[in-house]
């Protein structure tokens, strides 16, 4: 597979990165300026969003995989026992 240089990637992706950061900023502004409901309860999705944004700012890779895991339900290795399903073969 052909490998690209960092400057090649930045040249191709810079404007799109800028656009997506701007989109994200506008979406968060939209949320912040929306009306608060009287019976507003904490929404766990907000914590996921905050955690996802924080994951972008670290130098840990792979970031895409980290973000995916933040928005994922946890896996329970004992799920088959909990469901009462037994290995049959």
């Amino acid at each position: 597979m052909r490998e690209r240089s960092k400057s090649d990637v930045l040249q191709t992706d810079f404007l799109e990165i800028r656009q997506r950061i701007l989109d994200l900023a506008a979406m968060l502004d939209r949320y912040d300026t929306a009306l608060e409901e009287a019976d507003q309860k904490p929404d766990p999705r907000l914590a996921q969003i905050r955690e996802g944004i924080a994951a972008l700012s670290t130098s840990d890779r792979p970031r895409a995989e980290s973000v995916q895991r933040i928005f994922s339900l946890a896996y329970d290795p004992d799920w088959q026992e909990n469901f009462g399903l037994k290995r049959r073969f």
């Binding site: 995916q68 895991r69 928005f71 994922s72 339900l73 946890a74 896996y75 329970d76 799920w79 088959q80 290995r87 049959r88 073969f89």
Partner: peptide, 18 residues
């Protein structure tokens, strides 16, 4: 979406189990 990681692990468990 949110179910993918958990569900994929469960599916792989079931295939490996047969």
């Amino acid at each position: 979406l949110a179910d993918k990681y958990q569900g994929t692990r469960m599916i792989l468990d079931m295939i490996k189990g047969d």
